[in-house]
Design a protein around this nucleic acid. Structure first.
Lengths: 361, 361
DNA sequence: AATTGCAATGATAGCGCTGTCATTTTTGGA
DNA sequence: TCCAAAAATGACAGCGCTATCATTGCAATT
């Protein structure tokens, strides 16, 4: 490495607790990092004992454990997970795939997941599939190479081949966000349709009769919300197709404004708009402000997800609060149980949602 | 595993391309996953040849390579990175630590990083340290166990012990966001101070004389912005300490509104406010809307970062556009070069910033 | 004093892969 | 036709760790 002028040559000298040279002398040659053997030699015990001191500390006497810890600290020893995974056939990795991180909904979910798994010694490997089943498959392949002990997927938007890949690996999967009662499927989420239905009913109850639905980024959850809206509005005998605006583009605040403009062109008499998420709704609120449209008097606006901003925007946004953090926590617990071979009481956990009726509707 | 009632027993039968039983027969016993050996036997070549077919395909004849690929597909073979890393002493992992993902700034950066590294066959391991040097150290320790080939850190907010840990591991680090000319330090970012200075000067140029600075989440970058503001305003002879509001709380839109209220209590005659980020500024805009304060006539508002929303809010937000995506891309490239032992022409890359003068100031 | 049981420690093998150094086959002149 | 060089393939060891099955020592019991 050094002769190639690589990084190692540029280290500051003597920065460790011990003198560098003496440390190197006690190290394995190939990597330059201290190994279990190095620690073992230093303490004068066998390798396996040092391994135990870290992996199953109750199996090693307290005194020895302390000495081992001391030696490890002195040498700057860090356990090599690759070797550990190889030997034990447990990687202590779990792979988590989400569609996006720009959408703070998934950030919250991932935060919940991370919290649970970290507490149990697992490492979360996170991948972003950009709402694409194709990318998802590539990611599954990539993460399978880490021999994860389990996998957390968002929704059920995978190809059959993806499912087969995971099946072949023989590891458990838990699906987040959506629910399914399909055989052998574990899921934690809430009913997107029921939530959309609740919001539509809220708008109806407020006396609105010309209620539009606007959505972008037509992933399965968005489409489920659309169904929830449509079924409800049809049942009320108020469905008019020109009040639905569905575009595949990625959601953004700016797009919300643009879509409101489009909606009001094709259906100017609309008296309420249900947006598939808060970003779009927020953009619409801005557009109303610009055009002097009174919200909610002239036009009611509703969103979905209850992002932090929605509570304090002007007007504050009526929306659906989704249990995304809890979905992360619960699905992590479920996956953990599956990994450890425990029986999982419920294969489907519905965490519900809450309608937040605020100023905008 | 099975006798414990673990997941494997719940797989759907015969879902693979081959019959499950026949597949199992050709597999190593311990993991249940196909190995290089399995593929090699199936094709009738040696293990190492199969290894080459994946790792250095140019070293294997095209015909054979195809047959190996076919066999691998049939068996559902996925390379085991742990074994690979152990044998080759290159993990092909890089660890990336960011303070937060709720802040979409870092999401953008991570997206840039991911793109570069994925293209080069590296796997990015991402950790969130919640702006805490203590958590950062724990994360470094955790990620060092993956034997990463390099590390990307946000800022220079680490403890000395953290630095020593990484030094001992002998892997290169590149720091993102901030700049430093410290010996042996690689960094990609922009000058937070210069950006804050530019904004302050912009507000001065617009004729404002009672300019406040409001910040939360006092990480090093926020403090640098504060310095940029303060130096400039002092130089203009206009510094008044009661126009600075600094709180340690996490940033949010709601907090922006609250801090504006506080500022206007303690300095009601303020004519411009420079917020340390767009979230706070957006909250302030909402508060102005609620209280009927005209922006920018009565009060000018400026933010920092240029989040997507800032362009289309009402009024649109004057802010500093930061090159966060490019920071991700460039720092990834720099780290890659260091890993591969190439000479890195510049140890510090300043990607600059842009002032976006919009309606709010 | 002999026996049992348990806690603490050790020896050995091997996880799945690749570095290294052969060995074999092919290729392209002379 | 022959030979050197290059391309293609293989044998083997070992990366750092843990599962497994000993072995040792010592307290508790008979």
């Amino acid at each position: 490495m050094n002769e190639k002028g690589t990084f190692r040559g540029e280290q500051r000298a003597g920065s460790g607790i011990l003198d560098r040279a003496s440390k190197l002398a006690s190290r394995a040659s190939s990597t330059g990092r201290a190994t279990l053997d190095d620690v073992a030699k230093r303490v004068g015990v066998s390798t396996i004992t040092v391994s135990r001191a870290f992996g199953r500390p109750d199996k090693v006497s307290e005194d020895l454990r302390r000495r081992i810890q001391q030696a490890a600290d002195d040498l700057g020893y860090v356990r090599n997970r690759a070797a550990s995974a190889l030997a034990s056939n447990r990687s202590m990795n779990i792979a988590v795939l989400v569609p996006s991180l720009s959408n703070s909904v998934f950030v919250d979910t991932v935060t919940g997941i991370e919290k649970v798994f970290r507490a149990h010694g697992y490492q979360m490997l996170m991948g972003v599939n950009h709402y694409s089943a194709e990318e998802e498959e590539a990611l599954v392949r990539a993460y399978l190479a880490f021999a994860p002990d389990g996998m957390l997927l968002t929704g059920f938007n995978y190809r059959e081949a993806t499912r087969q890949l995971i099946d072949q690996a023989g590891i458990p999967i838990v699906h987040m966000m959506e629910l399914s009662d399909r055989e052998g499927t574990y899921s934690v989420g809430f009913s997107q349709e029921a939530a959309a239905q609740a919001m539509t009913e809220h708008l109806l109850a407020k006396g609105h009769r010309r209620i539009a639905f606007v959505a972008s980024q037509l992933d399965p959850r968005t489409l489920a919300r659309n169904r929830g809206y449509r079924d409800t509005i049809i049942k009320a005998g108020l469905y008019e197709s020109h009040r639905e605006v569905l575009v595949p583009d990625q959601s953004s605040v700016a797009l919300g404004a643009a879509l409101l403009r489009r909606l009001l062109e094709q259906a100017p008499d609309t008296d309420a708009v249900f947006f598939c998420n808060d970003d779009l709704a927020q953009g619409a609120l801005f557009e109303c402000l610009r055009r002097g449209i009174q919200v909610p008097n002239q036009l009611a606006v509703a969103g979905f997800n209850d992002l932090p901003m929605s509570e304090c925007s002007v007007p504050s946004l009526t929306t659906i609060a989704t249990p995304r953090y809890d979905i992360g926590v619960q699905s992590a617990h479920m996956l953990l149980a599956l990994i450890e071979g425990q029986t999982v009481p419920r294969k489907t956990i519905d965490l519900g949602f809450q309608l937040r009726a605020r100023e905008s509707a």
